[in-house]
């Protein structure tokens, strides 16, 4: 559906994106992940045929963006970071205007507008002026304008921006419902949004793609790149008198491979610790804690959270032994 090769964009002398290469297949829901200013919006605006790249090529459904922008615009729906809404228009009239502008056949306009209103939960406000809508409804109206002409490709720039948790949940549900009929590319800097909604992630940082794949594949790639870092949860029962927490923490920190240990809960004689460690250090930790006289109740290792993976991708950790010096 989308083929991007060597995409680069400069604003004056400032490089916004550099040599981006990726493909998105028909029907995929892809999350475009990056910090603010990473180049997400620039990339999406190029894909939406709103701006030209400085170099590189974009093909959408086999059409070259530079030459066939007019035809491509009929195939795609785009929600910019600020929904393009005319405040003085009623919601229904606005969607009708967009449908006609996007070249929907006159006999289909009413049906398409009705479907978009229903899908986005806007039917009850269809007669209201857009200026009176809440932020959540404005965002929904923005999505409705992007889908009213049934585009095969949907590009959503930060669709959950500024929404409250309930609205984010509703928006997530809406995107899931749209996923069956559309290829979707959505951007966000909220990682949980991306992981819960998308089949695949594209991580962009300082204008470069730093990872491309499923959440699991990226997690494995980060691990194989030398950042086999995980969290080990330990639950202990004190056997002696006094507060066993600080002693247990100190014992854990002596184990090779342990980066840090912290007490997360202390209830009576029971203590819970979280230990950051490189590699699987469960056996060494169990041995150390038992030998030092603690009652070991539980010991689990879990992988890095998506947030941590993202941190590794945008701020790679120095190699073991500290940064290389000249």
């Amino acid at each position: 559906m989308i083929e991007v090769e060597g995409l680069t964009k400069y604003y004056g002398g400032k490089r916004a994106i550099h040599d981006l290469n990726f493909r998105i297949e028909k029907g995929e829901v892809v999350g475009f992940l990056g910090l603010n200013g990473a180049g997400k919006t620039t990339t999406l605006r190029i894909l939406a045929c709103l701006i030209l790249p400085s170099s590189g090529s974009v093909r959408i459904d086999g059409l070259e963006a530079g030459e066939s922008a007019h035809e491509i615009r009929k195939l795609l729906g785009f929600l910019p970071d600020t929904p393009p809404l005319y405040d003085e228009m009623a919601v229904g009239d606005y969607l009708r205007f967009v449908a006609e502008l996007k070249d929907v056949a006159p006999r289909d306009v009413s049906r398409r507008v009705g479907e978009a209103l229903e899908l986005c939960g806007l039917t009850e406000v269809r007669l209201d002026p857009i200026s009176t809508l809440s932020h959540g409804y404005r965002q929904r109206a923005g999505i409705a304008q992007a889908i009213v002409h049934k585009p095969s490709l949907l590009i959503l720039d930060e669709p959950t921006s500024g929404l409250d948790p309930v609205q984010i949940g509703e928006m997530r549900e809406l995107i899931r419902r749209l996923a069956g009929d559309h290829t979707i590319l959505l951007s966000s800097h909220i990682l949980t949004e991306i992981s819960q909604t998308c089949d695949r992630l594209l991580v962009i940082h300082e204008g470069l793609i730093t990872a491309d794949g499923t959440e699991e594949a990226i997690r494995k790639r980060v691990a194989s790149a030398g950042s086999d870092e995980g969290i080990i949860e330990v639950e202990l029962e004190a056997t002696g008198s006094g507060d066993p927490g600080p002693a247990a923490k100190a014992q854990c920190e002596k184990v090779t491979g342990v980066l840090a240990a912290r007490i997360v809960r202390s209830e009576g004689r029971r203590i819970s610790l979280e230990i950051e460690a490189i590699g699987d250090q469960r056996a060494a930790l169990a041995r150390t804690l038992v030998e030092s006289g603690h009652g070991l109740l539980r010991l689990d290792r879990r992988s890095l959270a998506l947030e941590s993976i993202f941190q590794r991708l945008v701020h790679p950790a120095p190699p073991p032994g500290g940064p290389i010096s000249a």
Partner: peptide
């Protein structure tokens, strides 16, 4: 200023 030019620019309109 209101960002609605994105709608016109993103539509099949010259």
């Amino acid at each position: 200023s209101q960002g609605t030019l994105n709608l016109l620019f993103g539509s099949p309109v010259r």
